[in-house]
Each structure stands twice: as structure tokens, then as C-alpha cells.
Amino acid sequence: MPKEKFEILETACVPLPLENVDTDQIIPARFLSATSRDGFGDNLFRDWRYLKSGEKNPDFVLNNPKFGGKVLVTGKNFGSGSSREHAVWAIYDYGFRAVVSSFFADIFKNNSLNNGLLPIIISEDLLKKLHSQIQSDPSTKVRIDLEKQTLTIISTGDSVKFEINSYKKECLLKGLDDIDFLLTMKDQIKEYENNKSMVK
């Protein structure tokens, strides 16, 4: 479904400086049995967020009142593993609108862009810097300007340009999704079907 338009985001960050966080950690498989897209945020990082007793794990960053905001700043190779889009829904449903890493798994990146969540790739050096900045000052804010494709650490003034496919950028800015777009192409698709060849 079309999402809210992605406007300029100025927000504090939640740091999760772990590498290789896979989709089973983001949303464990046992929570995939729902038939709607809502409510997955409650189980985001479930097994890290809660202790075996069911109580909140005070050591996990989402339970630390010092940190908050709409940007999740992660470590290298975020979102590997299963293609489950539920991982993105969980992150979005929790309230995040962008995820920052030095490297994302392909399917995760695609799924994010399809669901109004902006994946931003920055260099490993800057990612380190951002993490240490957030650790020393949890109120550190970033400004994400999708139109200009920039991410700025407001307090230090560090700013970088990030890459995004121009088609996906349009969709995010307008709050449109791919299905809206494809549905406008029905005639062309039928024409293709009539002239189809297996290979070219």
C-alpha cells in the first residue's frame, strides 16, 4: 500500500552497532504467522529485547530510555537472511523511517524501499564516527534530505551524499508504490504476452 511521503527527517538515532544482523534476529520466524502487516513492531528484535523470563532486557538499546528517534544506525551487513518482508514491516511499525549501515543485504534493501523505509549506505569510517558520536551524546541528531540525497550529523556538520535509484527516490518522495506504477502498464504487459519469446 502507498506509504506516507518521505519528507526531510531530522531526528535522534538508535544505535545498534552489531554486524551481520539477520532477518531472524529482526523478527524471529515464530512471529510470522500473522495475516496482516500491522503490529510487527512489538516483536522487533524480540529475542534481544526480552529476557527468557519475558521481561525487558535492560541491556538492549531499544529498552534504554537514553536512545530514541526515527533512524536506526546499525553495523555492517544488515538484513541478511530470509526474504521476509516482515523484517521491514517490524522496523517501520516500530517507528523507524530510515536505517543506516555500511552494507545491506540486497533483498532487505529492496523490501525497505518498497515499504517507505529508506536504507542509507555510508562509509565504514563515517558509520564508526556516527556510532561514537551517538554513544558520547545520545541526543545526537541527523538530518536526512532525500531530495538532495544527503545525511548530515547536525552537531558535527559531517555530511555525505548517499546513493538511491532515481525511480525509487521518486516513489518514496511521492509516497507511491511499485504496484501503483505497474497497474498503469497493463496494456503494455498484455502486448508483451502476445509477442513473448523465451530468450533474446
Binding site: 518482508e85 516482515h86 523490501n111 518498497n114 515499504n115 508504490d177 511499485d178 504496484i179 505497474l182
Partner: peptide, 8 residues
């Protein structure tokens, strides 16, 4: 593919 793409 993800579920949005299943829908597509």
C-alpha cells in the same frame, strides 16, 4: 521476493 512483490 518480498510480500509487496508477491502482490505485484
Amino acid at each position: 521476493i518480498g510480500t509487496s512483490e508477491v502482490e505485484m
